[in-house]
Simulated scan of single mutants.
Amino acid sequence: MKFNYKFQHILTLKEREKEETFSLYEESVRQFERAAQKLYELLKKKEVLEQFQSEKLETGYSIQKIRHNQIFVHNLEETINYWQKQVISTRKEMKYWEEKLLESNIEVKKYEKIKDKSYDYFQQWVNHYENNQMDEIAAIQFQHRKGN
């Protein structure tokens, strides 16, 4: 006899959903890492620029160059603000897919547990059936020996 799990199709669908959710989660992690890396690079660039500007102010710097650097720093700060929002947004998306992945894992585990219990019940039934068959065979053999 072969074990046939009645919810196998549902389990297969849940496993496929879990795999899709995992790939979406991985993609959201990559997007978050890219945004965080870009933000880090911009912050580092701003730090270097501010240090350069500080050194130049001590040694003497023309007003035109100071204004030019201030405009550049202002634009850099706007870009940093944009990437900070991107990091927050991608972090939220990553957390969302992480929660969905956890839910998918739980769903798959539920169906796997049901499958395990069904298989255990099936095994008990098969053992009981085989024992009954053996008892019947033994009774028939006993009847044949008794009749001879």
Rank of each mutant, 00 (worst) to 15 (best):
K2S: 05
F3E: 10
Y5I: 03
Q8G: 01
H9L: 02
H9M: 03
I10T: 02
K14S: 09
E17W: 08
E17G: 02
F22A: 07
F22I: 13
E26W: 11
E33Q: 11
L39K: 01
K44M: 13
K44F: 12
E47T: 14
E50K: 05
E50G: 02
F52W: 15
S54D: 06
E55D: 12
K56A: 06
K56G: 00
I63G: 00
I63N: 08
Q64Y: 01
Q64R: 05
I66G: 00
I71E: 00
H74F: 09
N75R: 09
N75V: 00
L76F: 15
E77S: 12
E78M: 04
N81H: 04
N81K: 11
Y82W: 12
K85N: 10
Q86L: 09
I88C: 11
S89C: 00
T90I: 04
R91P: 01
M94V: 09
M94R: 11
K95T: 07
Y96N: 15
E98N: 12
K100R: 15
K100Q: 14
L101S: 06
L101I: 00
I106V: 14
V108C: 01
V108N: 00
K113L: 07
I114N: 12
I114Y: 12
K117L: 09
Y119E: 12
Y119T: 07
D120W: 05
Q123V: 15
Q124Y: 06
M134H: 05
M134D: 10
E136V: 10
I137D: 15
A139Q: 12
I140K: 03
I140L: 04
Q141S: 11
F142D: 00
Q143W: 04
H144N: 09
R145T: 08
K146G: 06
K146W: 13
N148V: 05
